[in-house]
Simulated scan of single mutants.
Amino acid sequence: MNSRIAAFIQHLGVSYNEFERSINAGRGSVSGAIKNDRNLGSHIVESILQKYKELSADWLFRNHGEMLISTDKMLREEVTQYRLRTDNNGGFQQIPLYNLEATAGLVELFRHVDEKTPMDYLSIPNLPKCDGAVFVTGDSMYPLLKSGDIVIYKEVSNIEEGIFWGEMYLVSVDLDGEEYISVKYIQKSEVDENHIKLVSQNSHHQPKDIRKDRIRALAMVKASVRINAMR
């Protein structure tokens, strides 16, 4: 199994340290086990499969089949669209599905999208024109969205003029030099016109006012897909 985990990390294009952080494992817990050919704890393996829904458990445990679960097997027909009245159908689209861990964040993805390799493509009929799709993490939009769902987005190039109040967005914010990525509703802020309010679906998450100039990347969520990883 260790060699297959090493192959998967290489596929992601991240360091062992980055991979360990992504699954909330201690530094060296994965790299040390692979280097010294030790068994990984079951809790670490479970964390890997929970974090990376695209990774095939059958391949990981038994070396059967392909490393990645095809999107056709992952998707159930639970597509929810979030349309504006002005949206038109984009016709047949091959929407690229990206792994944000592998693309080094939303800002990097938007700046160099032509250089990024999608992990797969989605084909969903009757959607408005979209730019891409990513996996959701966290529970701030639960129960509308849960961790592991997919959001399909259209990039907003002009933040000052491109926000429709009350709509759902994929947003990257600079917080003390760190990129914070989330899916939120954007509402007008009571602070002043230079701020916006980020609002969660989950009532346990409090709204947060941020300055517009803290936004590093923004995309309107056009649809979401509830996924079911086949085991």
Rank of each mutant, 00 (worst) to 15 (best):
M1E: 11
N2F: 04
S3C: 11
S3W: 08
A7G: 04
I9M: 11
Q10M: 09
H11N: 13
S15T: 14
Y16A: 02
E18Q: 15
E20V: 08
I23M: 08
S29M: 09
S42C: 06
H43L: 12
I44C: 05
L55R: 04
S56A: 08
A57C: 06
D58F: 00
R62K: 13
G65C: 06
L68Q: 02
D72V: 09
M74Y: 03
L75K: 05
Q81C: 13
F92V: 15
T103N: 01
G105W: 04
L109P: 03
R111N: 15
H112C: 13
I124M: 06
N126K: 11
D131E: 08
T137L: 00
S140Y: 09
P143W: 01
L145I: 04
S147R: 12
V151D: 01
E160P: 03
E161Q: 12
F164M: 14
Y169K: 01
L170K: 07
Y180K: 14
V183E: 04
E190S: 15
D192N: 14
D192C: 04
E193T: 11
N194T: 12
N194A: 08
H195G: 09
K197N: 03
L198C: 06
V199G: 09
S200H: 00
S200N: 08
P207N: 15
I215Y: 13
L218E: 01
K222V: 02
A223C: 08
R226S: 10
M230T: 14
